[in-house]
């Protein structure tokens, strides 16, 4: 992975959130042990959302990965099954979440979350747009994987 990969990914997440007209975008990916891990987000609230889901082991992204389909949550703070209040407790600013599965070939590789700080309905067209942006994210990840080397020159690993 090149030295700019984290920056590239953050820029892409910011760009996707802008494109979609939402407050942010966040990414979770499976690692080599088939664990869904929080990778990053376009801002601090997205980090909270992904970290909460990873630590609680539940949430819209986890549900999306489990069913292999999009999961649209109008208000994360709503009572189960409409919301995920135990996740929301750790990601207070986030209200609405749209989670779309990331499919590479026929394999599920992760989940892309879009979120808003006020509750909202996600209509069919928005869910479709989210899925298309998920396709775009898979391409970006493939490019990053192909440009990756084992030298990890940014030094954090």
């Amino acid at each position: 992975m090149g030295p700019d990969a984290p920056l590239v990914l953050e820029n892409v997440l910011v760009g996707m959130a802008d494109l979609f007209g939402v407050d942010g975008a966040a990414l979770m990916l499976f690692d080599g042990q088939d664990r869904l891990r929080a990778i990053g987000a376009s801002d601090d609230d997205g980090i909270l959302l992904e970290s909460a889901q990873e630590s609680v082991g539940d949430g819209p992204a986890i549900a999306s990965a489990a069913c292999g389909d999009s999961v649209a949550i109008n208000d994360l703070h709503a009572a189960t099954p409409l919301g995920f209040p135990h996740v929301a407790a750790h990601a207070m600013p986030v209200r609405a979440v749209l989670s779309v599965p990331l499919i590479e070939g026929s394999e599920l590789i992760g989940v892309l979350d879009f979120y808003a700080r006020i509750g909202r309905d996600w209509d069919c067209a928005e869910v479709e747009t989210g899925s298309r942006l998920g396709e775009l994210m898979v391409i970006v990840l493939q490019v990053l994987a192909e440009s990756r080397t084992d030298s990890f020159p940014f030094g954090q690993v």
Binding site: L7, L29, Q142, F152, V157
Partner: peptide, 30 residues
Amino acid sequence: THIDPEALVASLRRLQKNTTATGIVHHLER
């Protein structure tokens, strides 16, 4: 950045194993 580089490396390593490099032009077309 708001990206965890270690987690990103772990996931890209997995992805890299499963994909065949196709080149930037192919990706741009997609």
